[in-house]
Simulated assay, not measured.
Amino acid sequence: MRSGRLNAQVTFEQKVGTKDEYGHPTEDWAPIPGMVDIWANVKPITGRERWANQHMTNTATLAVTIRYRDDIKPEMRIRFGDMRLEITGPPINVDNRNRELVITCEEDST
């Protein structure tokens, strides 16, 4: 993979259990150590609008390409700037060569 294609930095996050100010358990997202500021290429694939719950919802589907890693899981999410990208499926190991992964994600904006 040519490094010039990886022109953006992303951070992988996972859910962590915390407690709110009243001591009640809650879940929040936190960066995964060792998976902060990973070089990537982020490309939009599709965008759509739909009417849901009496308001318009915009959904963008993006492809995030990174160097190969074997520790990416669908339950993670990706932070790209102000965007929070939900991983929608297993990462694709391009040509099964262990060089690059393509991760399909969705970003919702209401």
Rank of each mutant, 00 (worst) to 15 (best):
G81A: 12
Q9P: 00
Q14W: 05
Q9K: 14
E13P: 08
L85S: 06
W29S: 04
T59I: 15
V64E: 07
W29E: 11
M56L: 11
D82Q: 12
R50E: 08
A52E: 14
R5W: 09
T57L: 12
N98I: 00
T11I: 10
D82H: 11
T88K: 11
T104R: 11
T57S: 02
Y68Q: 07
R48W: 00
K19T: 06
D20T: 06
Y22P: 00
I103D: 05
E86D: 14
A52I: 09
A30D: 01
G4D: 14
R97T: 03
N98G: 01
I72A: 04
P44E: 13
W39C: 10
P91K: 01
R99G: 08
N53A: 15
N41R: 14
A52D: 11
N98T: 01
H24P: 00
V102F: 01
H24C: 10
A60N: 06
E75W: 07
T46A: 11
T88H: 02
P74A: 00
D37V: 04
S109A: 05
W51Q: 06
V16C: 11
V16K: 15
P90A: 00
D95F: 10
S3I: 12
M76K: 06
V64S: 08
V94C: 08
P44D: 06
Y68E: 09
K15F: 00
E49M: 08
E100N: 04
E75C: 02
I32C: 05
N93T: 07
T57Y: 02
V64L: 02
I72H: 13
P31C: 11
T65Q: 01
